[in-house]
Structures are given as C-alpha cells and as structure tokens.
Amino acid sequence: MTISHRTRPRLRPRTVAQLVLLPTILLTVIGYHGSILWTIVLSFTPSRMLPVYRWTGFDMYERLLNTERWQVAYQNLFIFGGLYIGFCLLFGLVLAILLDQGVKGRSILQTIFLYPIALSFVVTGLAWKWLLNPTTGLQDFVRSLGWENFTLDLLSSPDRAIYTLVIAGVWHSAGLTMVILFAGLQSIDHEIWRASRVDGIPRWRMYLHVVIPMLWPVVVTCLVLLSMNVVRSYELIVVLTGGGPGFSTDVPAKFIIDHYFARQSVCLASAAETLRLLTVAAILAISALSRRGGEAAT
C-alpha cells in the first residue's frame, strides 16, 4: 500500500530493465567480443611490444607452428588434458558409485574428497611441490622405510614431470567430478534396482550396461567443466614445474602469457591465442553434438 503513494517513476519499469542491462551489454561487447576480435587482428600483424597494424597474413601462424616450444606446449595440452580428464572421470565415477552403496560416514568422506576444489591451483601446486621434493618429501620417506633405491624423481625429469601435473590436477578436481556424478546417480529411478533384483542381474552389470549409459549427459557436463580447466591451466604449471625442466611441461596458456609480457612478442602470442580459441570452439562443438547424441540414444 505504501508503494502506490510514492512518486511514480518517470520511466516505464520495462525500460528501466532494459537500461539496467545496458552496462553489462557494453562491458560484454567491448570486453569480450572487442577483445577477442582485437586479439585475432593482432595475430595477423608483426606487433612486438605494442600493437602495430600492418598486415602480414599468416606469417605468424607459420612461425608459431614451426616453433618447437609451441609444439611441445600444444601437445602437452592433450597429454595433460587426456590424462587429467580421464583419471578425474574414472576416479570420480568409482568414488561416486562406492559412496552410493550405503556406506557409513558418507558425508565425512564426501567432505574429504571434495575439499581440494576450494583451494586455488597455486596452493595445490605448492603443496604437491613440497610433497614431491626429493630431499625431504615422499622419496625420502619411502627410502626411510627400507627401499633405499626408491626414486620418485618426477619433478626433475623432462619425460615424467608432466605426470606430477596430472596427479596434482586430479587431486584438485576428482572430488568435483565425484559430486556431480553422485548427484546423477541419486537422480536415477530406484525402480531399476528392484527390477534388476527380480531379473537376477548382478549389480556390476547394471552399472556397466544401464546406469553408466544413463549418466551420459552428466558425464558430458563434467567433460566440459574439466576441459575448461585444462585449456585455462596456467597457475598449476607455473607453481609446480615452471614449465620445466626445459620446456617439457609448457602449456599454451604459459606460452602465451610469456610471449605477451616477458618476451614481448604480441603477434606470436595472439596467433597462439587464436589457435587456442579454435581448439575451445572445437571442444564445445563436439560436446554439444555428443550431448545431442546421448539424448537421442536414451
């Protein structure tokens, strides 16, 4: 009642609603779309530290694709990404299914499995670096138990350093996968379990042939979420391996930030960004298609 006696607003509320969106629209158009376009434009120029607008065509892309460091970084995106996503899904699924067996202390276990997601990748990297350090870390501990020749020299080995990123990454994100998949499991109709008991189908076969296929849309959600983590991954690498030894654990994000700011090669970094953008677009397109495929199948 009090409302009606206040001064009537001069603008119609719907107009106000449109005006409220205006700053966000401007911010989006300039901040996102403008920035993305700008980056793409810069990839066709010879800009070093500051933007220069001279068309050089695909020269930078050619140089980029011939740069060994980029080849390693781009390859690592798929090695790290494949292992990280694979293990997060596998580990998350196993934990979710086990927790769904009516275990005691489920909520405590869930809290323990999920807490790393609250931590930054910086903290994750620092903790794992400390755990894996060769002088006082895990290696030293196992040796003190009697295995004198045990070596866990992951961080200083160019071939194996990338696995430390996978381990730390899975530690950080497996809980999230577990929670999402667990929610998916809970939403499945309990009738199917009764039906399977009547038909005498073992539980593991139910999971393999019925439940996991039903979870497909949830799995795709996890895939998208984890893929975004992979494409963005930067801090974990900077803190844990610094991209090394050498450039063995370099990733596109680190290559790009280094070339933008430390090496002042804006053109090359922009070309790399554009390629990464295309990679993201491809991932999203595939996930959209597979989701549709999954829906058609069920």
Binding site: T24, I25, T28, V29, I30, G31, Y32, H33, G34, S35, I36, W38, T39, L42, P51, M228, V231, R232, Y234, A253, I256, I257, Y260, V266, A269, S270, E273, R276, L277, V280, L284
Partner: peptide, 21 residues
C-alpha cells in the same frame, strides 16, 4: 548468449587487449 561466451572462452584471450584498454 552473448554474455555466456565469457564463461567458455578462456579469459587469457582477452587479457592483452584489456591491458591496452
């Protein structure tokens, strides 16, 4: 939809232009 592009594009793509702006 325009806004959600920002949720999927890795934000590093926009960093250098934003620094310039």
């Amino acid at each position: 939809a325009m806004l959600l592009i920002g949720a999927f594009v890795p934000y590093q793509v926009m960093i250098y232009p934003l620094v310039r702006m």
